[in-house]
Structure formats: structure tokens, C-alpha cells
Design a protein around this nucleic acid. Structure first.
Length: 414
RNA sequence: GUGAUUGUAGCUCAGUUGGUUAGAGCGCCUGAUUGUGGUUCAGGAGGCCGCGGGUUCAAAUCCCGUCUUUCACCCCA
């Protein structure tokens, strides 16, 4: 049915079986691993004040300027659907005072960005992310990256690559920007239009521009880290060294900067070859976010579930592997048996068993076909004859053998 | 937001230079002697040809608009 009437909005999709079983696996394993690291789940509203995003993500970023679903509600309040999870999480933690300054929380939630859809880019997409608040500490950054790596392993994802870099402190960033602006000034005319704009708004973005000319110019510049204090450089080295000791392989990328304003020090990105142009399955970094007077420092990451799924499929991990299978199927013959079997099914299901049955009077053949299609391991046949005798026939769908037995025995076997 | 691309049965797709009742495979339903699935055989149901206009004696097919799909730019997870 290709009619628009029944279609979800552009760039949004209904997630249904069997794919949903992959989602379940992803979410279950994430919750389990996060718990091992002492993270607790946080569910914040999808809708927030627009100002929350402007202040944390950055007023001039593309995400805020042209990708958000922002609107006025009936009371004239400026609101926006969250384009990412960190802002709302920090809003929540900031309200918890001291407790929020040293917290570990994770979320698994839908995010919204009003962009043109393409491979790996939906208007409603889903992220699993964590935030670990606390004063800057390279070990915390390393642990966060290691956790992320372990999560990928738990999902069965292989072939991903972690790239890491540092943006330095806020003070370093001023120095870096000033220096870059000065060095780039003579090349200004050779830069692409976007980068000419970025020169004033956010010079750092010039460094990771994909335009060939810009790339060539960027290659002539000194590494970003060379403009940072020794302390900041040591910070990055410690993160990388610690990860090495933990057996987590990362690749230093001198041009990685990432687009959101709140990042300081460590930033990283995980990419996977199975993806298209949008090849990042995850991104993360250390940040400092000031919603009130006091900035909240922390480190965190977010992973795009849809992109993880694409990558998993390339690794041979499919939804079918996690779909429920087996179970029982109850076959009834005659109205009386149908009514009696409703009660039997209720009992079996109450014991935690998967048990299907046909609720309309259908031929035995039709019921058997359904049982087969449902992948039932055993079929319990209980028609009028069996009810009169107080028995049921249990048939093994694998080898076709069957046996008539008392109802009590049926319950015991099931 | 820009550029390209797609839309025909539940699914995957055919459909000749516009020309009769729009097809296939898979799936679904019903049968092949009484109450037994998968394989086989026979039969059957199921389409506003995305939607709205237009051209024409005639449109799934040509033109315009619109929505949608996919991909890239841009941006990011």
C-alpha cells in the first residue's frame, strides 16, 4: 500500500516486527552494561524550551539554526523538539544541585531533526547516550570511550573505528581560533563559501571541511593541539594512553573538531564502513554546559540506533536471531472446545508460556497451518472428543509424533 | 534548504512506440473421502497503476502540480 494516507511523516518510520526484536536486543544489552558501570536511566521530555538548546548546543550551530523543530505553543512559549539528548539531561541534572554535579545517567530516546532524509538520517531517530558529570579527568573520558567500545562488542558489532582529538579548554579554544583565523586569512579567497562564513562564526569547522581546496589549505596548518597549553596536551595524551592500557584502540585525528559548541578537551567519533555518507555511528566528548550561573562539566556520548542497526546487519546480526520462537499452539474443534481451550490457554500463558490459538471456528488443517507458520514446537489438540475424555493430544511438530494424555500431564509437560 | 531519484496486488517486480477485461513470482484462502502442519497438485480472492489537474477518440504509459521513497550536498548520531 503506497498510499500516503497510511504513511508516517517524511523521514519518520514505524518500527515493527521483526526489526523491533533487534531494537529490544540493543536496548536490553545497553541497559545491562550501563548498570554495570553505575549509570542510571533518565527519561526527559521530548519537548523543551528552545533556549535550553540555544544555550547548550550553541546559537550559531546548524543543529540549532536550521535543523530543529522549533515552534510557539498556544501560550506563545518558544519550544523545540530535542535534536539531541545532552541538553535536556544537563537541564535535569542542573536542577538537582550537588547531586547532579556527580551523576551518571543514560538515556535511550527519540530525537528530532528537520533535515532532508538520506541514508542514516531520519527526522525522528533514536539515540542511546550517557552523561557522566564531574570535573575534567582524563580517566573519566577514557572510561567513557571504553564503555562505548564494550557496548559495541556486546551488540556484536565489529569493524568500527574510533577517532579522537582534543579541542582544549575554553581558553585554548580562543587561542586556537585566533591563531587559525590569522593563519587562514591569507587563504581566505581560496576557501569555499561555507568556510568563508565559518571563518567568522566558528573557525574550527574550517579544519574538517570536506572540500578539497579547504582540505589542502588545512593540511598546511599546524596541528590544533600545538596551540594548546601543555596541560591540555597532556590531558589528551593521558586519555589515549589509558585507553591503550585498557586494550581499546583509538586513532588520533588532528582534524576532528565536531560541531557542537559545548565540547572541551576530548572529542571523539566512531565510524563504520557499512554506512553511507553519514558514516558516524556515535560521537562524544567532554563538555561544559552553563544553563544557569554555574557550568556543569561532564563527559558523554550518543550513538545513533538506526546507524548501529545498519552496521550490525553488515556484520550478519539480524533481527530474526532475536525474534521469539518455539512455543505452543492450541487446536480446538467445536465451539465447546474453543471455549474450554481459552481457559487452558490462559493457564499456560499464566505460566509464562507462549501459546497461540485460533479464536474462530476453522478447520483443523487451517489451524495446523497457522501453528506451523507461528513456529510452534508443540501443538496441543483438544477437541470435543478429548474434552469428553479429559485428555489432550500433544504433537511434536519437529518429528510429527503425537501422544494422547491426561490434561494434568499436558500441563506438566508444557 | 539545494540537486538527482522513486511510486503498479500483502511483498519483490514486469507492463512494448499511449490502444481491449493491468500481469508474474512469492505469500494468502479453499480443496485433493470423516479431526492433522511443512512438500506436491488444482482452484480462488486480492489493484482509485501515490494523489490532483491537463493533453487525447483513448493515459499505468505524455505534460504540470503535489505528497512520498531513495541518494548526494550541507550537517550530524
Amino acid at each position: 500500500m503506497a498510499s500516503n494516507e497510511f504513511q508516517a511523516l517524511q523521514g519518520m518510520s514505524d518500527i515493527h516486527a521483526p526489526e523491533i526484536y533487534l531494537w529490544h536486543m540493543i536496548e536490553e544489552r545497553a541497559r545491562q552494561l550501563f548498570s554495570c558501570y553505575g549509570y542510571e536511566e533518565l527519561r526527559t521530555p521530548s519537548l523543551e524550551k528552545l533556549s535550553i538548546f540555544k544555550r547548550s548546543i550553541g546559537d550559531t550551530t546548524d543543529v540549532v539554526q536550521k535543523e530543529m523543530y522549533a515552534f510557539e505553543d498556544r501560550g506563545g512559549r518558544e519550544l523545540a523538539l530535542r535534536p539531541e539528548g545532552t541538553a535536556g539531561t544537563i537541564r535535569h541534572l542542573a536542577g538537582r544541585g550537588e547531586e547532579g554535579q556527580n551523576a551518571r545517567v543514560f538515556y535511550i530516546s527519540p530525537m528530532f531533526r528537520c533535515e532532508r532524509p538520506q541514508a542514516g538520517r531520519k527526522r525522528q531517530f533514536h539515540q542511546v547516550g550517557v552523561e557522566d558529570t564531574g570535573e575534567p579527568n582524563p580517566l573519566a573520558d577514557a572510561e567513557c570511550i571504553a564503555l562505548q567500545q564494550q557496548l559495541l562488542e556486546a551488540w556484536g558489532l565489529t569493524g568500527s573505528k574510533i577517532q579522537i582529538n582534543s579541542r582544549g579548554t575554553k581558553e585554548d579554544q580562543k587561542l586556537i581560533s585566533d591563531n587559525l583565523r590569522q593563519l587562514l586569512d591569507e587563504h581566505r579567497g581560496d576557501l569555499c563559501d561555507d568556510c568563508q562564513r565559518r571563518m567568522d562564526e566558528n573557525v574550527l569547522r574550517v579544519i574538517d571541511c570536506k572540500n578539497e581546496k579547504c582540505k589542502a589549505i588545512a593540511a598546511t596548518l599546524p596541528e590544533m593541539r600545538s596551540f594548546m597549553t601543555q596541560e591540555s596536551q597532556d590531558y589528551l595524551d593521558t586519555v589515549i594512553e589509558t585507553l591503550g592500557q585498557m586494550g581499546v584502540e583509538v586513532e588520533y585525528d588532528r582534524n576532528l573538531v565536531r560541531g557542537l559548541d559545548y565540547y572541551v578537551h576530548t572529542v571523539w567519533e566512531i565510524t563504520h564502513g557499512a554506512l553511507g555518507a553519514q558514516n558516524a555511528i556515535a560521537g562524544g566528548g567532554r563538555y561544559e554546559i552553563a544553563l544557569g550561573k554555574k557550568a556543569i562539566p561532564g563527559v558523554g556520548f550518543a550513538m545513533g540506533i538506526e546507524r548501529v542497526i545498519t552496521s550490525l546487519e553488515a556484520c550478519g546480526v539480524t533481527a530474526g536471531q532475536f525474534a521469539p520462537k518455539g512455543g505452543l499452539w492450541l487446536v480446538s474443534l467445536g465451539d465447546e472446545a474453543l471455549a474450554a481451550n481459552m481457559q487452558l490457554a490462559r493457564e499456560l500463558r499464566g505460566k509464562g508460556l507462549r501459546c497461540g490459538m485460533e479464536l474462530a471456528a476453522k478447520s483443523m488443517k487451517a489451524q495446523m497451518r497457522k501453528a506451523n507458520r507461528a513456529g510452534a514446537e508443540k501443538v496441543i489438540i483438544r477437541g470435543e472428543d478429548e474434552i469428553a475424555k479429559g485428555t489432550a493430544i500433544v504433537k511434536d511438530m519437529e518429528d510429527g509424533s503425537q501422544e494422547e494424555m491426561g490434561l494434568d500431564d499436558v500441563l506438566r509437560i508444557a
